[in-house]
Design a protein around this nucleic acid. Sequence first.
DNA 1: GGGGGAAACTTGATGCTTCAAGCTATCGGA
DNA 2: TCCGATAGCTTGAAGCATCAAGTTTCCCCC
Lengths: 165, 165
Amino acid sequence: MEPRGGWLDETEQRAWQGLIGFAMLALPELERAHRRHGLVHIEYGLLAALSDRSYRLSELAAMLTMSQSRLSHRMNKLRDRGLVLLSPSPEDGRVTVAEISPAGRALVESIAPGHVEDVRRLVFDNLTPAQTEALADALTAVIGGLGSCGPIDRPAPDCPPPGCP
Amino acid sequence: MEPRGGWLDETEQRAWQGLIGFAMLALPELERAHRRHGLVHIEYGLLAALSDRSYRLSELAAMLTMSQSRLSHRMNKLRDRGLVLLSPSPEDGRVTVAEISPAGRALVESIAPGHVEDVRRLVFDNLTPAQTEALADALTAVIGGLGSCGPIDRPAPDCPPPGCP
DNA sequence: GGGGGAAACTTGATGCTTCAAGCTATCGGA
DNA sequence: TCCGATAGCTTGAAGCATCAAGTTTCCCCC
């Protein structure tokens, strides 16, 4: 077996191709589906999160692993379209709290079923239950290892620096 | 068992979260790594493909599942930087053939080892061999099912229309 | 042999993401 | 009390992806 540090072995290549393929095929397909409703994918995620309860913006950014800048731009759009409400927190003058509007709730609820159907069609219809579970386990392990490497605004310092000597 | 069409079950949710998490954490990290060398991720893919042999542009677009428009924009940049050469095919006046330049080859060869290391660090260091194989199998099945749903320029007609009635 | 149609690629506009600054508000210590 | 440091968020510019034409070349059938 290769001692490490060489090229990817055949199985790893297949897995890597699969991950990239997913990002290049399935995600754009979902993106298009959302855009037909006037949203980008991340906006759907935001509305879905806010349909549960209100959040501070920094909480939202952390939950969806997006930068605060990106969140700010997106929330402005959503507010302009009347889908969310932004109000400064009375307790801390720095934070602003985001809340979904009735229109936003109506929109996300009208989109959700189709979205679930798309996810099924694109991913889970092609997998056996055992494969789905194995996929979940493997990706959970990957995400767990990535955890500290936030590609958010402030990447954690304990994230090993990228492989450029 | 749910008859179908409901929300995702718990395992499916975990798998879906993993896929999205990968796209939101690992891919941006790789993107940043490439940008330190002045490339975007897809440009690395293009140079890597061309380091093997020359290709017609439409071949490249199909291989990397990108639209011809996107490819055109990107190839112009790469040509402007002297990393690839574009020449019209003598056999068919419509096609143009892309070839890597010495500078392009030197660049991709200098980047490749670090890239492999990044992929290992971000993904495969967190997986056992069995998990890697399961991941590869599951994703191969997903991609296979997606096959006809090209998010390329011309989506295949047999791709079931997205779930928006 | 000429004309409709398709293939290969290009172009330009629009919108999203990213990056680097910037701005308040809050907290801690001297 | 005041001042530096930090947290939370915003802003603007630059670059990439996407979409909808547009152009040229080739094919092929009438």
